[in-house]
Design a protein around this nucleic acid. Structure first.
Lengths: 160, 160
DNA sequence: GTACTTTTACTCGGATACCGTCTGTCCGAGTAATTATGG
DNA sequence: CCATAATTACTCGGACAGACGGTATCCGAGTAAAAGTAC
């Protein structure tokens, strides 16, 4: 039970796109390269973010990807959902009902209730943080230096 | 990213063992049968619970499994840990550091902090509930009826 | 009836197989800007 | 110089392969109670 690494990569990719000026796009290959991810595979991950309406894609020469929503409207949980899908961390297989010889009609399960409550607490934390707040946390300490360097590099590669 | 079904089965198995009188044991095959689980496979799951000191095993004829700890001392999270292990839901692959061109020394990652906080909130819920409190919730409504029937069945199969 | 042996019913660990999922690669198709070409 | 065609650089979707983990099965070994056997 472990989160896909593509979730972490997606968060980073969106943080990267957040540095772009308005209307500018960044090709998928440049993004993958910055993240150190497999270009051909991460292209498919980017597609998931597009389908979730988190980013937009522009085909053709000088095409690429750009943020679709405002940074403060993208929760980390949204990114998680885009990659991992909507199924919850726990899904009852009805073992308790089977053990108690209950028919499937009254399939109520205490364990399910508990797990759902735990998941809701987990989700709440991921919903609290947005791309905007994450980005703000980057603008402190030694991070700013590296961001500036990255920004310069992005400015080379991006297309307006 | 989904919890193993063996976690749910383990919780049910421990609830089942909780119904036994002191010193009585129940063979693994009877337990599996009650849960509707694969006997040969669930034997290995029971081994995990033994290694985690949640239950005890007695070899030989008239052997089986019995609760090791007191019900109020077994948190649902303990059962989860016994099955899924101690690795957290999220583990950073260092993508953010790579993107910012930071050397691995200063591998600090904001995303990691957020994920850990979310996981702690999740864990807290699973730690709150114990086998005792779960079992108490069973003793309400229509559940008691089915428990009594199960209890009778268990009394047949158990060994003192 | 007591001592010893055999059977029986369990747990335990290793080896192995199946299957689904995540990762990763490759290819052809679609799209749009750029470039080349022809008059 | 202008219209059209070809090239180029992207995204997009499907097919496929490899690795890994969870589920599942089988087997031999260990263990202890029960049953059988010999005296």
């Amino acid at each position: 039970m472990q989160m896909k690494t593509s979730v972490e990569q997606s968060v980073c990719a969106i943080l990267l796109l957040h540095m772009l000026p308005d209307k500018a796009v960044l090709p998928g290959e440049v993004i993958s390269q910055q993240l150190g991810a497999s270009p051909t595979y991460f292209q498919k991950i980017l597609r998931k973010l597009v389908r979730a309406d988190l980013i937009t894609s522009v085909p053709g020469v000088k095409g690429g990807f750009r943020l679709e929503k405002k940074p403060e409207e993208i929760q980390v949980y949204d990114i998680y959902l885009a990659i991992e899908g909507r199924q919850s961390l726990y899904s009852s297989s009805g073992t308790l009902s089977h053990m108690l010889h209950l028919n499937l009609e009254e399939n109520y399960c205490m364990i399910n209730d508990l797990m759902e409550e735990a998941e809701e607490a987990w989700i709440a934390v991921l919903q609290r943080e947005t791309v905007a707040s994450l980005s703000q946390k980057l603008n402190i300490n030694q991070f700013q230096l590296n961001i500036d360097a990255l920004q310069a590099l992005v400015n080379e590669k991006m297309v307006v």
